[in-house]
């Protein structure tokens, strides 16, 4: 007999591992990726592959330079792949390769590894990349095209939210119907077009218990209520709440980015507060801010509040009851 190993109890573990969690997220994003390829063609596939490969390569490079061991396991743990796909889903279909690569670099090196790697980052890496690119390359980041499949050749077009900001609600209603938003026959970044694909992925994650309902529900709920109030006040000026949920990054954010475990609160109560905060901030930016879309900023702002939220939403200990004297 070989010598016995001594491990600390418990001696059995759940079969669920980090990689399973991560690959479940990858699986959940497949519908959205497929839809984007269907609408935007091979360009979309190219962006996705570039972003994923870029993320993995930069991670490997960083770990190598930092003198880390176990590089292979870290790069293949699935988290870099998730970040890569998320970056792609956040980019417009016209994004040049070099810009995609810069995005990957920012996400992996600046937003993730510099903080200490997976688990220690404060901000969602893919969103840091998106916001960085949006500020650095505003032109490339807002060059939208309509999905070529439905409207003839790809033509430059505005996103519904962009149109709303510049041309007003009337133009938007003339151009799109709610069904367009639902199916995705609208302009937007790769992962923002088809609500139905995002919903399928989100439901999968909920079913697999990778994410819990709190963040998506509270985020979309509060966005719905917030925009609903303004819509009720002035229906000619403000878009209806369903519009706000189906367009832009709301669903992508709610299911795939706000729910990022590392950068969201740890308790259920905290998740509710976190989601609600994102919903309200998104509404505020969309309705009154300078940018047409506010999901990314809203999530990043709430990311920074997570330690505070965690502090005030600690779970209640068992046995905190009054003792009879």
């Amino acid at each position: 007999m070989k010598s016995l190993v001594i491990t600390s109890s418990p001696h059995v573990r759940s079969i669920e591992r980090l990689t399973d969690v991560m690959y479940d997220v990858v699986i959940a994003m497949i519908p959205a990726v497929l839809v984007s390829i269907y609408f935007f063609g091979l360009q979309s596939l190219l962006i996705t592959v570039t972003a994923v490969v870029g993320c993995m390569a930069f991670e490997a490079l960083f770990l190598k330079i930092a003198g880390k061991t176990n590089i292979r396991a870290t790069v293949l743990d699935g988290s870099a792949i998730v970040t890569g796909i998320l970056i792609a889903l956040n980019l417009p279909p016209t994004s040049p390769i070099w810009m995609t690569l810069i995005g990957s670099l920012i996400a992996i090196i600046v937003a993730k590894q510099v903080f200490g790697g997976l688990g220690y980052n404060i901000f969602n890496p893919a969103l840091v990349a998106r916001v960085f690119l949006l500020i650095s390359f505003p032109v490339q980041m807002t060059r939208w095209v309509n999905p070529s499949f439905f409207k003839g050749d790809a033509i430059t077009a505005a996103t519904p939210l962009g149109m709303l900001k510049t041309d007003g609600l009337a133009t938007v209603s003339k151009t799109f119907s709610h069904l367009d938003f639902f199916l995705g026959t609208i302009g937007g970044s790769l992962g923002e077009v088809s609500a139905v694909a995002l919903l399928i992925g989100g439901l999968y994650l909920l079913m697999r218990k990778v994410i819990s309902w709190e963040i998506p529900v509270s985020m979309l709920g509060s966005l719905f209520i917030f925009t609903g109030i303004f819509w009720m006040l002035d229906k000619a000026r403000y878009a209806d709440p369903i519009f706000h949920i189906l367009t832009g990054g709301a669903l992508l954010g709610a299911f795939f980015m706000a729910t990022d475990m590392v950068t969201s609160p740890i308790t259920r109560k905290g998740m509710l507060i976190f989601g609600a905060g994102i919903g309200v901030l998104t509404g505020l930016i969309r309705l009154f801010g300078g940018y047409p879309e506010g999901v990314s900023f809203a999530i990043l702002i709430m990311n920074s509040l997570v330690p505070l939220i965690d502090k005030y939403t600690e779970v209640k200990k068992f046995g905190l009851v009054k003792v009879k004297a």
């Binding site: 997976l118 688990g119 475990m261 590392v262 740890i266």
Partner: peptide, 13 residues
């Protein structure tokens, strides 16, 4: 026996 190295906390809750 599952003896694997500890990973980082991913704050999954």
């Amino acid at each position: 026996v599952c003896y694997v190295d500890e990973g980082p906390c991913i704050r999954c809750g």
